[in-house]
Design a protein around this nucleic acid. Structure first.
Lengths: 211, 211
DNA sequence: CATAGTTTTGACCATATGGTCAGGAAACCC
DNA sequence: GGGTTTCCTGACCATATGGTCAAAACTATG
């Protein structure tokens, strides 16, 4: 007579299985989009029958939401690089490094997030309206402070943030295009370093931060 | 006994109907992704029964390919701004303007392209491998020439191009996010101008082009 | 008006999809 | 070992989807 099949007290087995499924789901959602992803395919990638996926995640949407949740947390974590910095050179430089690292290590997640936003954020609109608005406001103010202190040129903080997001995430979201233009091979370590350095150099010089 | 229902000689009625359907399809593909888009929804948006869509475009994939075709042509056209420029200030500045204008006028198309590439370009991989590779090579060489002539800093042409693409397309692909962060309202004319000016200012200064 | 070509669409079909469920297998606990 | 909870999954279902088709309606033209 158990109406709620999900136990309140999570045990280790459950956590481990959810982890495996979430990883598979992230990959499939990234490669096929929400609409194109099928529970069957996620099950195949996770190496277990479809009904098992539904045992841990009742609906496709719930599973998707959990995937997006995870991405958003990682995304926000990169903000730590921003905070506590003494000036734009340190803060923005570290932020670029952090976001480039995310693009490299979590390309699937980045794509899922991009897809979600591109399609109007049907699932995570509340995140955008609350957490992201707040996050952006805080960082824009920090940048404005740096401007007021004469540490950088008076540019629009918001458009600078957009440029940082766009440029760093490009290496994940458009990774396939970058790879194709790289002769079909993934970027090497050295090429990632070059990418990071290029972005930092152009942006920091572009906003008038001395090196 | 006509095996091929599509006539070789296109008449005006056909062209007009295809135009209407392509427009509807672009919107639906952009908002739902290839997998999430349904022929029924495209038909509804185009204001005609589903069978009529299938009369003009035999399969979903054919319709999709036609949509992507159109985007890619527009995308390449922006290159005209690049060519014939005397230096980076003119060439890159005009290119940014052109691409920002595309983001503003064809946000759906930009999203379809982004989705396609993000999912591994299953349909248009041949475009990437031939036309885009060629296009990129030419422009990278042009940039390298400018560098060699001392007209700009010695940065990696490829990473500069990626930054230009990412930044300009962000306003289309992530338009929903930008709008949400703008208090839920689309960018005004003035805000678009500010966006363009910010991007141009940061990039041009960032690559050492005097203004 | 007759004929040929083109366009339109309601009804239909095979398949794929998200989701359910009953019943069995483990795992855990006293 | 007995009882309870958690885990697992093959079989199944209702629905949605891409696509087909034949017959009707429309159009152009001689």
């Amino acid at each position: 007579m158990n109406v709620e099949p999900i136990p309140l007290r999570p045990n280790t087995k459950r956590q481990e299985n959810e982890r495996i499924i979430l990883k598979a789901a992230e990959k499939v959602f990234a490669e096929a989009g929400y609409g194109g992803a099928t529970m069957q395919l996620i099950a195949d990638v996770a190496g277990r029958p479809k009904a098992n996926i539904h045992y841990y995640f009742q609906t496709k949407e719930q599973l998707y939401r959990r995937v997006v949740d995870r991405i958003f947390k990682i995304w926000l974590q990169a903000a730590d690089a921003f905070d506590g910095a003494k000036g734009p050179a340190e803060g923005i430089g570290a932020y670029i490094d952090a976001k480039m690292e995310i693009s490299r290590k979590h390309p699937h997640g980045s794509k899922v997030w991009a897809s979600e936003v591109m399609h109007g954020a049907p699932i995570i609109q509340d995140y955008l309206e609350v957490k992201l608005v707040e996050w952006t406001k805080d960082r824009a103010e920090a940048i404005q402070n740096w401007i007021d202190q004469g540490l950088m040129d008076p540019i629009s903080p918001r458009h600078l943030l957009y440029m940082l997001w766009a440029t760093t995430q490009h290496y994940a979201d458009f990774g396939h295009q970058v790879e194709t233009l790289n002769g079909g091979a993934p970027l090497t370590d050295a090429q990632w370093q070059e990418a990071k350095a290029s972005v930092k150099m152009i942006v920091l010089k572009g906003i008038g931060v001395p090196r």
